[in-house]
């Protein structure tokens, strides 16, 4: 799982907003230039990003392991033609390039995950999304980080308890229903208590946000992000 690791690399010291924008710019630019030459350039850039965060590419790929079968499968399926039945290797070139592009985008997003603490991500969301929607998403992100492991443990207990009573012999529908019902019940019970606690603590639309400030090293990186976006139109 790709989570934050403390460090003092360049990527750690950048403002989270800079990192989000550059990631998005990279993805957009990689989509616009999915040619062998374009992807060669983006490979070098990806290596640069990984180095800037001192993130291992092998580690990052492991974090995205569930994505990998599809990335491999898509070009393979394109090779097979139905009418006339046969194999057309040429048809796999574009899907293979597309798969490689997805891989690069995943690697770059791994740098963000490894180098940005939750608190910074939350603050970035609150500043990037305007108005009350931004506040909702900011608070919400913090709450999801807080409650996701708790609910996951709830569900795990339910599944273990169910399995201990031979629940794993029941039909798939019943097993999903049991986990689903328990999940909904726990979610409602926890949200009621959370709402009470929020009201008791004067939950407001305008809390004091953690400090975020662009520093001198952010500007060249931001300019680079803009350059990536501009490259789409070239």
């Amino acid at each position: 799982m790709l989570t934050y690791r403390p460090g003092d690399s360049l990527a750690h010291r950048l403002d989270p907003r800079t990192k989000l924008l550059v990631q998005a710019a990279f993805a957009v630019a990689a989509f616009a230039h999915t040619t062998p030459r374009g992807l060669a350039v983006f490979t070098v850039l990806t290596a640069g990003f990984l180095a800037a965060g001192r993130v291992s590419p092998v580690d990052s790929l492991r974090g995205f392991a569930p994505a990998l079968p599809f990335v491999v499968l898509a070009p393979l399926v394109s090779v097979v033609t139905v009418s006339p039945p046969g194999v057309d290797l040429g048809a796999a070139v574009d899907p293979a390039l597309a798969s490689y592009r997805v891989l690069l985008v995943l690697l770059v997003s791994a740098v963000y995950l490894r180098t940005t603490p939750v608190r910074d991500s939350r603050a970035a969301v609150e500043r990037l999304v305007p108005g009350k929607a931004g506040r909702f998403f900011g608070v919400g992100v913090a709450l999801v980080f807080r409650f996701f492991p708790v609910l996951l443990a709830d569900l795990r207990r339910v599944r273990e308890a169910s399995a201990a009573r031979l629940g794993d012999q029941r039909s798939l529908r019943d097993r999903i229903r049991i986990v689903g019902t328990a999940g909904v019940r726990r979610a409602f019970a926890r949200s009621d208590r959370l709402a009470l606690a929020l009201r008791a603590r004067c939950f407001a639309w305008n809390p004091t946000l953690p400090d975020l400030r662009f520093s001198r090293r952010d500007y060249p990186v931001l300019a680079f992000g803009l350059l990536l976006v501009a490259s789409v139109f070239v």
Binding site: M1, L2, A24, G63, P66, A67, L113, S121, V125
Partner: peptide, 15 residues
């Protein structure tokens, strides 16, 4: 924002 909540525990803008 980084919570590992997409399929298979993935996270980030990548997915």
């Amino acid at each position: 924002a980084g919570a590992p909540i997409f399929a298979g525990g993935q996270a980030g803008l990548g997915p």
